[in-house]
């Protein structure tokens, strides 16, 4: 089954420095029917104005992934990590027993757009850790490029959950296929452009699909598109 979640139906938080479009219940938005999809608990599509951001705040027991789409995001935490990430970088924080951090737009001129995803970890009371990696943007073309996985490498960030997150830039009329083990789930978020899943379900910019009981899909670019796909474990979380 492919369930579509149109961009326009997301809850939006907007103020003078932040626009946040929420894929799942978060902060002031609470919908008991939209808490999570497997271990995926938060999917925020954020735009932060120049020089602004989130001050020091804590996290625990979550795997937090940030994917910058435009601009630059500055991170600092109490583990001693600091850095600036942009398009082509992936940041992963394993909050574990607790981490304090801040996130700000590193630019005073340009806005920063980024996706922030939180996953439930497969183990509690982990030692907090931080990682950022660079992926090869050229490898995105008409190919599902893994950028976060349980099994890491130089260009794949490690996550403490049985999942793999892929990014892809699909040219118009090109297709990619994805197959997973039965019993698992797929989450697709179309970042820009327009794609069709299994000749049937059309995702425009910022639309999402939650896929269950369908373990092989074909994604076609109806126009040049940029999307992410997450191969998620099945079962209860």
């Amino acid at each position: 089954m492919i369930e579509l979640y149109p961009a326009g139906k997301r809850y939006t938080v907007k103020n003078d420095w932040l626009e946040s479009n929420l894929g799942f219940s978060f902060s002031e938005y609470y919908d008991s029917s939209n808490i999570q999809f497997g271990p995926l608990r938060v999917f925020n599509d954020d735009t932060v104005q120049p020089g602004k951001g989130f001050g020091i705040h804590p996290h625990r027991e979550a795997e937090i992934v940030s994917i910058v789409l435009k601009g630059q995001l500055k991170h600092e935490d109490n583990l001693g990590n600091s850095g600036i990430i942009g398009h082509g970088n992936i940041q992963r924080i394993s909050a574990g027993t607790g981490v304090l951090h801040s996130e700000f737009n590193a630019s005073n001129q340009e806005e920063v757009q980024f996706l922030q995803l939180w996953f439930l970890p497969n183990e509690k009371k982990l030692i907090p850790s931080y990682e950022d990696i660079s992926y090869d943007i050229e490898q995105l073309h008409n190919h599902l490029l893994p950028v976060i996985s349980r099994i890491s490498s130089d260009r794949v960030a490690k996550i403490h959950q049985d999942l793999t997150l892929y990014l892809s830039k699909l040219e118009e009329k090109k297709t990619v296929n994805f197959r997973q083990e039965e019993g698992r789930k797929i989450y697709v978020f179309n970042i820009e452009g327009e794609i069709t899943i299994n000749n049937d379900s059309i995702l425009k910019s910022r639309d999402a699909a939650r896929i269950t009981d369908t373990h092989e899909i074909t994604i076609q670019g109806n126009q040049d598109s940029f999307f992410l796909l997450i191969d998620l474990p099945g079962g209860e979380f």
Partner: peptide
């Protein structure tokens, strides 16, 4: 709530 910061 630690996931999502909902004020309880």
């Amino acid at each position: 709530h630690s996931i999502g910061s909902r004020l309880l």
